[in-house]
Amino acid sequence: MLELKNIKKQFSGRTILDNFNMQVPDNQITTIVGPSGAGKTTLLRCISGLEKTNSGSFILDGKSFDPANNRDNDNVIGVVFQDFQLFPNLTVLDNITLAPQLVLKQSKKESEKQAQKLIDQLNLTGKESLYPYELSGGQKQRVAIVRALAMNPKILCYDEPTSALDPDLRHTVENIILGLKKDNMTQIVVTHDMEFAKNIADQIVRVEPIKA
């Protein structure tokens, strides 16, 4: 379980998150909802270590943990960005296997074997040698998910996974997230879509804007 305790985050003196507390239980789906500008993306960026918090602590399975400094830790947080941020110069397969090879020191064969399993699981079979520009939005997102999963994260985070997609794909995203839950993946999903949140969530966390 990941716990956030008294997290405070300011941008040049402006407080976005103040004394924020939350628990992310294992193998569950935690959704984060709230109005635009409330700080949902900021919260996710703090959890994934892309922003440093001003104060407060992260506790992972009872041990203190600094996401902004997790280079040498075990793999903890995976991220699926709102705009996916695939690497345009690499094929689908290379997008997925790059980090396992360079960071986890997996062999080419090993990383490709693991990638292929995830590729098949997320219905991307046959797309391995395509470049990101040749994929649809939904396919790009699935590649982004596979790329994050290939690093064996404890927790997978999504920022607005439905926002860049056709509305009819929302259901597919729900199924993917619920499918990963069956595989015991812990997931944090930021969304402003209440219905989507209700459909997938074990727990809904609200982020409210702070009045200045």
Partner: peptide, 8 residues
Amino acid sequence: ESARVLRL
């Protein structure tokens, strides 16, 4: 950022 969260 995407490279960073993959810990490159």
